[in-house]
């Protein structure tokens, strides 16, 4: 049975419970045959990458928990010169066998995610084990259990597939092509956002239709949310967009030539006025 996880960073409140939970689970504790103890510091098997985008006062923080992706096509495995040192368990975890590893660090340079750490005292390389020792006891990984915000959706790979499709979950650094088992929802992409308000009352306008069109004529559409906010992601940098906002009973508004020059561009308050 192979496991997978979806990490919904839209829910992450930057609390670091997952990061410290991994230390709590692993520092000083060996879990044979999967891991030697994690050292007291300098190894973060899971880290929180705080990606800040936007310009004051329209800021967006993407807190991205980064652990080993347990890649299906793992460059670390290919790079390791010792036979069977890095192997895959039937649960899908990529494990470095600490009894075979001689600390040559080939895997460290091969891994695109920066999740392998040298242990100079023991001459080994160490990383996340997907908490294999816990999986064997029928438990979730420690970081997953620790999250108070429901960021991690954990389970059997096949059971998660539908959810992955529905939520357009993506690997981090997809271009690396390593086929990770960890998928993300809400990764930073070039985004255009704004706040639609009634020009007279200045109150939020939920349910407004926002249509953006690029120079080649392809367009995207979203509705503003309960607070009048909209956000369109997966756009192209340095592209000029035309933004049109419509709402029944209101004159529609078009903003031409919005150049996506920063990754999170916010148009501020956009006022719509009643048609009459």
């Amino acid at each position: 049975m192979k496991y997978s996880m979806i990490v919904d960073i839209n829910r992450c409140s930057v609390c670091y419970a997952c990061v410290v939970a991994c230390k709590n689970e692993h520092v000083g504790n060996p879990y044979p045959p999967y891991s030697y103890p994690q050292p007291d510091r300098d190894q973060e098997w899971i880290r929180l990458m705080e990606e800040e985008k936007g310009k004051y006062p329209y800021v967006k923080l993407y807190p991205i928990p980064v652990l080993c992706m347990h890649c299906n096509e793992a460059p670390c495995m290919e790079a390791c010169p010792i036979p069977d040192c890095i192997y895959r368990t039937k649960e899908g975890a990529v494990i470095i066998d600490s009894t075979k590893c001689d600390g040559c660090k080939s895997c460290i340079s091969a891994c695109p995610y920066g999740v392998i750490f040298p242990n100079e005292d023991r001459n080994i390389c160490q990383k996340c084990t997907l908490c294999m020792h816990r999986l064997e006891q029928g438990k979730e990984p420690a970081c997953v259990e620790a999250c108070p915000s429901g960021v991690f959706l954990w389970g059997e790979e096949s059971g998660l597939e539908k959810e992955m499709k529905k939520r357009e979950a993506m690997p981090l650094y997809r271009e690396k092509g390593t086929k990770p088992r960890v998928y993300y929802v809400g990764l930073p992409t070039p985004t255009l956002a704004g706040h639609v308000i009634d020009g007279k009352s200045l109150m939020d306008m939920p349910g407004a239709d926002v249509i953006i069109t690029d120079t080649r004529g392809s367009s995207m559409r979203r509705k503003s949310n309960v607070a009048g906010n909209f956000s369109l992601d997966n756009l192209k940098m340095d592209t000029a967009y035309t933004v049109k906002i419509e709402h029944t009973g209101y004159l529609s508004k078009t903003i031409e030539n919005v150049l996506l020059d920063i990754e999170y561009k916010h148009l501020g308050d956009i006022k719509l006025f009643k048609a009459s």
């Binding site: 829910r11 992450c12 409140s13 930057v14 807190p63 607070a227």
Partner: peptide, 9 residues
């Protein structure tokens, strides 16, 4: 941190 995930504005 509250604003990061819990604030529309």
């Amino acid at each position: 941190d509250t604003a990061v995930v819990h604030a529309d504005r």
